[in-house]
Amino acid sequence: MKLSEVKNILNAQVVVGEEFLEREVHSACGSDLMSDVLAFVKDQALLLTGLVNGQVIRTAEMMDIKAVVFVRGKKPTDEVTALANEYSMVVMTTDAPLYAACGKLYCEGLVPKERLD
């Protein structure tokens, strides 16, 4: 799924990385726990989180995650967006809560290959 589709589905605002919306993501991870992201995330994933701090961006960078969506209308600080900019990352915000945001993307076809069912 293209990030531009993610943006439309979540009715999200792009904070940084508008020029990278043609990027593809193959799976997504919804978590406020960065250590879980570091343990389990696969390639070309999108990170959705309600946690807003610089460590979210650093965690994403370590895992080669190129796009982060902040949920529940949370706005990143300038410091956070500057770091994302440095790593050429896309950052979006959506008013949807984490569960609903993940559910919408799943229903629209962002389903990882190794599904649980």
């Binding site: 406020d32 726990l33 250590s35 879980d36 570091l38 343990a39 989180t49 979210v56 965690t59």
Partner: peptide
Amino acid sequence: ELGFGAGMGLPNMKR
């Protein structure tokens, strides 16, 4: 609150 301290640090390093 910062997203860490869930007891995954050392296990992740080992992993």
